[in-house]
Design a protein around this nucleic acid. Sequence first.
DNA 1: GTCTATAATCAGATAGAC
DNA 2: GTCTATCTGATTATAGAC
Lengths: 204, 204
Amino acid sequence: MKPTAVKISFKEQMHRAREDAIIRTVNVLLAQKGFEAMTVDEVAATVGIAKASLYKHFPSKEDLAAAAMVQVMHRAQDYIATLSTTDAPLDNLRSVVRWTMELKLAGQMPSLPSQNSTLRAVLMANKDYMDGLMEVSDVLGGWIEAAQSQGKVNKQVPAIAILYTLFARACDPVLEFLKMGGMYDDAQIINLVMATCFDGLNAR
Amino acid sequence: MKPTAVKISFKEQMHRAREDAIIRTVNVLLAQKGFEAMTVDEVAATVGIAKASLYKHFPSKEDLAAAAMVQVMHRAQDYIATLSTTDAPLDNLRSVVRWTMELKLAGQMPSLPSQNSTLRAVLMANKDYMDGLMEVSDVLGGWIEAAQSQGKVNKQVPAIAILYTLFARACDPVLEFLKMGGMYDDAQIINLVMATCFDGLNAR
DNA sequence: GTCTATAATCAGATAGAC
DNA sequence: GTCTATCTGATTATAGAC
C-alpha cells in the first residue's frame, strides 16, 4: 500500500466527514425552521467553520438543502432495503410511513417549501435526489399495487394518490400539533396518525 | 340624516373597501408563495398603491398576513353558520373539510409557516383571529364528539386528534401533488382526499 | 392618506491573504 | 481549504412633501 494513496484516502475521508457534519447540521436546521428561515451564517456558526469555507463545499444555499434531502433520501432507501420483498406489502408500507414519522418527530426530517422555485430547480437537477425519489416511488408503488391486489388496500383510490398520501405523512403538521399539546408521547402520536391514515376517521 | 354622518360613513366605506382589496391580494399571494417569499413591494404593486400607503393601513408585514388569516377565518365562520345544528354532525364535518379544500384548490387558502415565530406572536396576539379559531374549534369539536356518540366516527381516536386531522386538510400537499399531475380535475381530487381522509387507505 | 425617495438591516455570496 | 473582511442586492420600514 503506497503512502501517497493512504494519504489521499485519509484526506478524502476527512473531507467526507466534514461534509457529513455540515449536512447533519443543515438537516436539523431545516427540520426546525425550514429553508427560508435557515441562514447560511447560522449553519456555518453551528458547524463551527467560516461561511466562506462552507461555500467551498457547497456552491449555494440551495445546494446545501439539496444535499440534506439527498442524505435523507439515501437513509430512506437504506431502510426500505431492509424490508422483505415477499412479506405482506401492506406491512412494508406501514413500516415506511412509521419510519418517516419517527424521523420527523426526532427533528431530522427537513421541511422544504413546495413553492420555492429556485430550490425546486436545484432539486430536480440533482441526479442523486431524483434517482432516489424514483426508486423509492417505484418500490412503494409496487407494494401499493400488490396490497390492492390482495384486497388489503382500497382499490377505489388510484395508486398514485395512495403514494402521495403516504409521502405527505413525512410533513404532517398533525404530528407537531399533537406534540405541542404535550398530552401524548411520540409513540402514541405516531399510533394515532397511523390509525387515522390507514383506518380513516369514520368508525369501522 | 346629517350630511356629516353620511360623509364619514362613505369615507369609512371606501377605507374598508380598499383594505378588503389589499387583504384579498395578500390572500392570493400567501396562497401562491407563502409568507417569506411574499414581499411587501409585490403586494403594493399588485394592489396598485405605494408601499408607504400600505404601511398606513397595516403596521407590518406580519399584520398584513394576520389580516388575511382573520378574513379567511371569518369566511369559515360564515360558512359554518350556514350548516344545520341538528343534522348529522358527520355530514357537517365533511362539508367543512370539503369547503377548506375547495378554497385551497382555488388558490385562496393562505399558507403560513408554522415555524415563523414573529408571525406566530402577531397571530396569537390578534383577538379576532384567536376568537375565530376558538369558535371554529368549539363547533367542530362538538360535532366530532356527537358523531362519535352516534358511532359514526372512530371512538378510539381522541377528538382533539380528529380536529387536528381535519384542520390539516386545509394545507394538505396531496392536493397540489394531484393537481400538478394533471390527471384529475378539482372535484375528483377533493373526492379522492375526502375518501382517504374519512375511509382510510385500508380496504373496507 | 398618498406619493417619492431613502434609511437601515439583513443575508447570500465573494475577494484575497495565508 | 480556511479565515477575515467586504460586496451586492433585496427587503422591511420610514421621512417628509403634498
